[in-house]
Write a protein that binds this DNA or RNA. Structure first.
Length: 898
RNA sequence: GGAGGCAUAGCUCAGCUGGUCAGAGUGCUUGCUUGACAUGCAAGAGGUCACUGGUUCGAUUCCAGUUGUCUCCACCA
């Protein structure tokens, strides 16, 4: 049933309706079909309380293109959507909302807080999911997951307990990146470095044995209270006399040793380094090497420690529950309770008063900040849970080195390998409440640690029932790392897991290769024994019109929802894909989105034209013998472009594929074929009209199919409006290349097209008005080719009639001439021709052609070329040479005749 | 400090495995109420493909170096 279309395309009225229909009819549902190959993708889960941004838009557009393409190719396709609990990000939002009500986490307590958090999730969790739908994402919502839902949590427990039992998870005092604002540890990957203006404070430490002073440069003088040594390089001649000596730590007058360690760089600073093992990762290493004590002088909320903190330490010590590397805690005395920043000022002032501050050297340096709140990170000794990375990383490195997993584009392999090879143990505990709670219980009586999937009721060691669960939760990436298989049911061997796992392709931005991709790879290998996917497609980020990163603080973000509302999801999708190369950043500009909106409108109107003219009731091609020249031409072109686009999509070259379908639909189909089709559509031969209708419908249908992965909405809408085929476009088969649809007549058609273009050119140049139709006389050796040209030239070149002859005209005075490689055309537009100008024009063309000719001749005359170049290339050049020669001959003929 | 990207028409960018491929969109100029579309049609101008070497019969394409620019990682005690 055909439907009439409006004059301009109006996406707003269409997209929502179509999406709802698809969803209602179950078009997105993944079906287990053992007769088919599967194609599955797990969607990078957006933050549950997040809002759709351009990054999501690119990521999901790429996935949707792949999924729709594969679905049409006949794969049993499953795209698994879901959301991430985004521990720290979400908790920060909830805490902020509570703060506005004057509440803190502690006010509520853990249970009440969690209730609020879940309520928050229920309230906002659906927002992003709804927003994704507006993009047209064809994911299976019936299989939607959440990283904290029952199934995912089960996988988390399984992995944690197994790893712990295998000794790959351990708990210990280590240096971690501590955010004093979020009051939690964060992983190395979550630290962002920002350049700050700071100082190098040069401090003098008196040497006890000799009475000399050692000059030490530091950017963090407030850490000196926690110094437990100073280090010099054993090879450093300047300081040899201090080997074995001690310094007196100023301000607190504590004696600490001078140690010899490679870490002290002779070239750098003064060559003497203060060692603060509890507050600096390098110093921690030095401390371990020299068995130095650990002294903590900061609290976890970013202040200097005081008497209470010291007392707590004494109590712990007295309880006998000290673990390895348990740090001492200093009572900072007059500095106690100050923020680290205030303490810095006070300490510098005091040192200066003592005459121990030698110099303040301004210095720009990078300061670690929290990726969420951008507070300065304080490295801190802290008791945390870690995943031992070495044995997990090895197979993950090997699999990629062996090519079992491929990054697209290839260059990201190196970034991944770099990350994996240098990765240190992963700190997985967070001092947050929103997340998966660590399945570890401590016996309050004997201190025994129990790790289990379910809470133990009694202590296995002392039979006490006084057990308490570790208060910490897991890094949000711990559950994301399991995503591709936890959402399929793992650790259960569910039908979904057995059929759809491993997934095929992962699509994500280069910014989370380390955070996420690498962790899924080692997790998949370690727990399922398989790579979670075989291809990782990496895309760039979307930048603003000036090329800046879109960010909240700059306020330069473009809201995809507004763009969709204004121009349609199809235009946005196409803009994000067309002409972009894999892995490169994309710039968002209004110009581009408007151009793409115009393209949707073009498609719309071409279809509208067809619908106004079609009287057929199904899509089928006429018999080959009934095909006109232009039919054979367009079918060959379509066939060719189908082959290329399919190939491009299979290679993940979506930008090129989109470019090609754009070009074919607009510049080939609309600009030429539709125009040519009007000859028969408006003619009086009903059989010819029926034939051209068939070809038009056939080609348009294939265009809709080829375009569908990129622009799902408009293509489906038109397909339905045409009413020639049962079912949804999204469920149709992908067009295939057919050898029998390659016709040799293409060259003929193109010769005629060359002539049309040449006539248009000369008409434009001679300012012949469009309304003026002229008689055209064609002189050619290829009369057969041009036999049918009359209709074409009348339609497209402003001809009133066409005469074809193979003999040169005797009298062409007063005629303008047009020359192509195999024909000349004469147009009686003498009254408008300035003979001299015409001569000059032809002369210029001759010169241009001669230049080309000499290029070919010099190539062909070069024996090195003819002997070494492949025959195909030589033949091509020969052909072109012949063509140019013929063109020159024709041109010269015209010139002489004038 | 380590790694990588980018440098092509005024602007924004494509260009796969080296061979007239110098391209698209937009902008600009000119002409069009051409019964699908002015969100359009037709014609045109515009580039030493950053610079210097090398490999090759041949380099925008491959290699090395230089310059400019952006990003990631590590780190400056």
């Amino acid at each position: 049933m055909k439907t009439e279309l409006s004059k301009t395309y109006n996406p707003q009225s269409i997209e929502k309706k179509i999406y709802e229909t698809w969803e209602k009819e179950g078009c997105f549902r993944g079906v287990i079909d053992h007769d088919k190959e599967h194609f599955s993708i797990s969607m990078p889960p957006p933050n549950v309380t997040g809002q759709l941004h351009m990054g999501h838009a690119v990521d999901n557009t790429i996935q949707d293109i792949l999924v729709r393409f594969k679905r049409m190719q006949g794969y049993s396709t499953l795209w698994l959507p879901g959301t991430d609990h985004a521990a720290i990000a979400t908790e920060a939002k909830i805490v902020e909302a509570m703060r506005q009500e004057g509440l803190s986490k502690e006010d509520l307590g853990r249970d009440k807080f969690m209730e609020r958090a879940w309520a928050w999730k229920e309230k906002y969790g659906n927002r992003i999911v709804e927003q994704l739908r507006t993009l047209g994402t064809s994911c299976d919502w019936e299989r939607e997951h959440f990283t904290m839902d029952e199934q995912c949590s089960k996988a988390v427990l399984e992995v944690f307990v197994n790893l712990y039992n295998e000794g790959k998870i351990y708990r210990g005092n280590r240096l971690v990146n501590w955010c004093p604002k979020c009051q939690t540890s964060i992983s190395d990957a979550e630290v962002e470095y920002e350049e700050h203006d700071g100082n190098f404070w040069h401090i003098l430490y008196p040497v006890k044995e000799t009475g000399d002073f050692l000059e030490i440069a530091t950017t963090r003088p407030e850490t000196m209270l926690g110094d437990t040594a100073v280090a010099i390089n054993p090879e450093d001649e300047r300081y040899k006399k201090f080997h074995g000596c001690h310094v007196i730590l100023p301000l607190i007058n504590k004696e600490i040793p001078i140690v010899l360690d490679e870490h002290a760089d002779i070239e750098k600073g003064t060559g003497v380094v203060k060692i603060t093992p509890a507050h600096d990762p390098n110093d921690f290493e030095v401390g371990q090497r020299h068995s130095l004590p650990l002294v903590r002088c900061f609290t976890y909320d970013g202040k200097m420690t005081g008497a209470e903190d010291y007392q707590a330490y004494c109590d712990l010590k007295a309880s006998g529950r000290m673990t390895e590397n348990e740090p001492e805690v200093l009572d900072c005395g007059k500095y106690a309770g100050m923020t680290t920043q205030d303490a810095r000022k006070a300490i510098v002032a005091d040192l200066e008063a003592l005459g121990l501050l030698k110099e303040i050297e301004p210095l720009k340096h990078d300061v670690g900040t929290c990726y969420r709140c951008h507070s300065t990170i304080e490295p801190m000794i802290s008791k945390q849970w870690f995943v031992k990375m070495k044995s997990l990383a090895e197979p993950a490195i090997k699999a990629v080195e062996d090519g079992e997993l491929r990054f697209v584009p290839e260059r990201f392999t190196k970034i991944y390998l770099n990350w994996m090879r240098n990765t240190r143990d992963w700190c997985i505990s967070r001092q947050l409440w929103w997340g998966h709670r660590i399945p570890a219980w401590f016996c309050q009586d004997c201190g025994e640690l129990h790790v289990a999937k379910e809470a133990p009721t009694v202590c296995a060691k002392c039979n006490s029932t006084n057990l308490e669960q570790d208060p910490d939760t897991l890094d949000t990436w711990f559950s994301s790392a399991l995503w591709p298989f936890s959402i399929l049911g793992w650790p259960e061997e569910t039908p979904d897991y057995n059929y759809f796992y491993p997934t095929n392709t992962l699509v994500t931005g280069y910014d989370i290769i380390g955070f996420w991709v690498s962790r899924m790879i080692f997790s998949g290998l370690a727990y399922t024994g398989k790579l979670p996917f075989d291809t990782v497609v990496i895309h760039g980020i979307v930048r603003d019109a000036q090329g800046r990163k879109m960010s909240k603080s700059l306020g330069n973000g473009v809201d995809p929802l507004e763009v969709i509302d204004q121009y349609g999801a199809d235009a946005l999708r196409f803009m994000l894909i067309q002409g972009c190369s894999p892995g490169n950043d994309i710039r968002y500009t209004d110009d581009k989105i408007i151009a793409m909106r115009n393209f949707t409108n073009k498609i719309w109107n071409a279809s509208r034209f067809l619908l106004l003219n079609l009287s057929i009731d199904k899509v089928e091609l006429p018999d080959t013998k009934d095909l006109a020249l232009e039919d054979k031409w367009i079918l060959s072109k379509l066939n060719q472009v189908t082959k290329e686009i399919t190939q491009n999509l299979e290679n993940y070259d979506m930008g090129i594929a989109a470019q090609k379908i754009y070009d074919f639909a607009w510049n080939v189909f609309c600009d030429w074929y539709i125009e040519l089709s009007k000859i028969r559509l408006n003619g009086d031969d009903p059989v010819a009209k029926n034939n051209v209708e068939k070809v038009l419908a056939y080609v348009l249908t294939d265009i809709l199919k080829l375009l569908h992965p990129f622009m799902p909405f408009i293509t489906e809408e038109i397909f339905q409006a045409m009413g020639l085929t049962e079912g949804f476009l999204m469920c149709q088969s992908w067009p295939e290349y057919q050898e029998e649809l390659n016709f040799s007549e293409v060259a003929q058609m193109e010769s005629i097209m060359d002539m049309i273009k040449a006539i248009r050119e000369v008409r434009a140049e001679l300012k012949v008005p469009n309304s003026k139709k002229v008689q055209v006389t064609l002189v050619t050796g290829q009369t057969a080719t041009y036999q049918n040209a009359e209709d074409y030239l009348i339609r497209l070149a402003g001809a009133s009639s066409v005469t074809v002859t193979d003999s040169d005209l005797s009298d062409i005075s007063g005629m303008a001439s047009v020359t192509t490689a195999d024909a000349k055309a004469y147009l009686p537009i003498a009254e408008m021709v300035d003979i001299e100008a015409e001569k000059a024009r032809i002369q210029t063309e001759i010169e241009k052609a001669k230049k080309e000719l000499s290029f070919f001749e010099s190539k062909l005359g070069n024996p090195n070329f003819t002997s070494k170049a492949p025959q195909k290339v030589i033949d091509e050049i020969r052909e072109k040479e012949a063509k140019v020669k013929s063109l020159i001959k024709n041109l010269e003929g015209s010139y002489n005749a004038l």
